[in-house]
């Protein structure tokens, strides 16, 4: 078992122990905070799949989270509360959106791709603002959590928390399987040299699109979970600031490690929590930290933790 997987296991274990610590220190708020952390970890993980492994810088990833959350919100608004409808619908909606956005933006690459995904992300934001039937700018409140019957009561925060952790662990496991599968290796090869992969006869566009759709679907799942945690959805979920945050989580944690984004989500949201308590101008501090990361060290926390094993990689040419 390699060090990355050990780190992933330790991270999940640590997250699983949060409710115990919350009980021991009598800080019930921690469960709520870390449920949020774990949900954003899932979203960041989904971004790492295309950013780290396929080299696709998507600056509009928050749209899938927003779509997943809005799917739950809108279904609930129309009186459909079944969790077995909510979650599949959220995943399908965001996967379809990723299919359409990906099919167009993957025709381009590099900086075009960044700008286009950013623009599509903002499109989702402005769309949500302009639909007054579902709250428009004010957002939409959800009456209660997705209904899974008495088997799985999501309104119990402990149950919900462990559901999120189980999903995160499952996705990490699937993620490790995926990136080391033939499909994952092809993605990484495309990142290093797409032209060569094309010349070898691989339809690289399809592989990238498939990865993009998987990533969007997982991010939509994170959105559905977030809607269940906050019981409120608003356009700000899809603001480009959110997409930037997801990128920062992946970079701060360490790209192309899968566990890195999880660590990144923990660091970022903890930092945000602490800074927001100190000053209303916390985004400025985050911005400064971000600048320092870019200027002085980009391997991320996972990169530092895993440094001993780090193999010197050739720089991909995009």
């Amino acid at each position: 078992m390699d060090r990355t997987k050990v780190l992933a296991m330790l991270t999940v274990l640590g997250l699983a122990l949060v409710p115990v610590a919350a009980w021991a220190f009598d800080e019930p708020f921690w469960i709520d905070l870390f449920a949020r952390v774990a949900i954003f970890a899932i979203a960041a993980l989904s971004l790492d799949l295309i950013l780290g492994f396929a080299g696709l810088v998507s600056f509009g990833h928050a749209i899938y989270m927003g779509l997943g959350a809005y799917t739950v919100g809108i279904l609930s608004y129309h009186g459909i509360t079944a969790g077995l409808v909510h979650f599949p619908a959220a995943i399908v909606v965001s996967a379809l959106a990723a299919l359409m956005i990906g099919a167009i933006s993957l025709r381009t690459s590099g900086v075009f791709f960044i700008m286009i995904t950013l623009a599509f992300g903002q499109m989702g934001y402005f769309l949500a603002i302009s639909i007054n039937a579902y709250g428009g700018d004010d957002g939409l409140s959800i009456n209660r959590q997705s209904d899974f019957g008495s088997l799985l009561r999501l309104d119990d925060l402990h149950v919900f928390y462990y559901l999120v952790i189980v999903i995160l662990a499952a996705l990490l496991w699937l993620g490790f399987r995926l990136v080391n599968s033939r499909f994952g290796l092809l993605l990484q090869a495309i990142r290093f040299n797409e032209r060569r992969m094309n010349a070898l006869g691989f339809p690289t566009f399809r592989y990238k699109l498939a990865a993009f759709v998987i990533s969007g679907a997982v991010c939509g799942l994170a959105g559905a979970l977030l809607a269940n945690l906050t019981l409120f959805v608003s356009p700000s979920l899809m603001h480009w600031f959110r997409s930037g945050e997801l990128l920062v989580m992946v970079i701060a944690g360490g790209m192309a490690t899968l566990v890195g984004p999880v660590l990144g989500a923990i660091i970022y949201l903890m930092l945000e929590h602490v800074l927001a308590g100190l000053t209303v101008h916390w985004p400025a501090v985050l911005g400064a930290i971000l600048l320092l990361i870019v200027l002085f060290g980009k391997q991320g926390l996972a990169g530092i933790l895993l440094a001993r094993k780090k193999v010197k990689e050739a720089k991909p040419h995009g």
């Binding site: 950013l51 590099g110 920062v248 911005g287 400064a288 600048l291 990361i293 870019v294 200027l295 995009g318």
Partner: peptide, 18 residues
């Protein structure tokens, strides 16, 4: 690479807005 540019300038934007 472009990712560096995006992150650094995103950071600058956050700072400027604040």
């Amino acid at each position: 690479d472009h990712l560096d540019h995006v992150l650094a300038t995103f950071g600058l934007t956050l700072i400027c807005n604040e």
